[in-house]
Nucleic acid binder design. Structure first.
Lengths: 195, 195
DNA sequence: CCTAACTAAACGAACGTTTAGTTAGGTAGG
DNA sequence: CCTACCTAACTAAACGTTCGTTTAGTTAGG
């Protein structure tokens, strides 16, 4: 029965991640989570100490599972710096574009995360991404402020999809703008064109 | 006594904006709002039909009051396009950097706003800003996709302060990065350097 | 037969909201 | 000038609901 524990736990984490991402911590009740899992509210407390612990576990689970794709891209060797930058921007854009659970939880944490949770967000999600961008930019755009530029790339990608619903109603919008490929192309063009 | 009504109403709007911006809609109770206003919960219902109407009124109030500074910059004539762009980026960056109530409510709406509220966000907050950027970019950077580039400028500025707490813990950070002047300089440099 | 995983039921607290009554400032009639 | 009254702005108290959580008991696989 030890197997059922981890099964239920993982199932709860994924199912709860969706609820928290969609509605936010305060707007999701333990009863709602239990209903979604076809369980009794009390059963949740077999797997998590309280609502806070459940939320923390959800963040841990989502961060770990979602940044693996990025780390895989990072680990690729034997490419030119330009290719690595492009592959990396596309991977990050793809995750942000397609994984609403990840990106919404991330934006929620940026709004409401405690200092301790921001620290985890920083090290577990952004540290490696940021270092990669900065290192590549040092080689590819030597005249720029790497810290600022790497940040700008990340925030353009995050904001591009955060503001998607508004962007689509502004003049000049084309559906192609939503594609991670288009975004990657233009972000790189923006950052790499010399003075 | 008609005066007391609008006084209390405005006071409630500003005080409640702070609470909603800080904690989010679901995490703020009517009792908490009443306590902050030194009123009874029931008194709130003299001024607003229910919690939703209060939140809507807060958004309306904040959007109207905060975008006036931007519109003033937009109305300035007799400047070069480059000066206008710079003044405009700085004004937007200044608001986003200094007015946490505005920027946090904005990010919350981007996460949780209904279709109707997103429409208001689009027209009341972003439409004019976006048009100005796009128009200026058409003259200053003719080779670019204006829609994408204008959006990129807005999202860099929004994301720069949204991610500030993470940015400060990443290698290469300097306090100067937080200044709207620095941000404006680098955003313009990023966008205006030709191929 | 033990233990892990659950259910049924309930706890007190807090929630949004309503009802009934109170207060205070403006206004009209004498 | 005074008084009687009206209404807007409030308070005190309670409504029923939902919240997070706990307790006690049940079930089923090793």
């Amino acid at each position: 029965m030890a197997r059922a524990q981890t099964d239920t736990r993982t199932r709860l984490l994924e199912l709860t991640a969706e609820l928290f991402a969609e509605l936010g911590y305060a707007a999701v009740s333990m009863r709602e989570i239990a209903r979604a899992a076809a369980l009794t509210p009390a059963a949740l407390y077999r797997h998590f100490a309280d609502k806070d612990a459940l939320y923390e576990a959800v963040l841990e689970h989502v961060y770990r599972s979602r940044t693996q794709a990025l780390h895989a891209v990072l680990a690729m060797d034997g490419q030119s710096n330009a290719d690595m930058l492009r592959g990396f921007v596309m991977a990050f854009a793809g995750i942000v574009a397609n994984d609403k659970i990840f990106s919404r939880l991330l934006h929620r944490e940026l709004l409401d995360g405690s200092a301790a949770r921001m620290q985890r967000l920083s090290t577990q999600v952004f540290q490696e991404t940021f270092d990669s961008f900065a290192t590549l930019l040092r080689a590819l755009a030597p005249g720029r402020d790497h810290h600022f530029t790497a940040n700008a790339m990340i925030t353009i990608i995050l904001g591009h999809y955060e503001c998607a619903v508004i962007r689509r109603s502004l003049p000049g919008y084309l559906p192609i703008h939503d594609s991670p490929d288009f975004l990657a192309d233009h972000v790189i063009k923006l950052v790499l064109t010399g003075p």
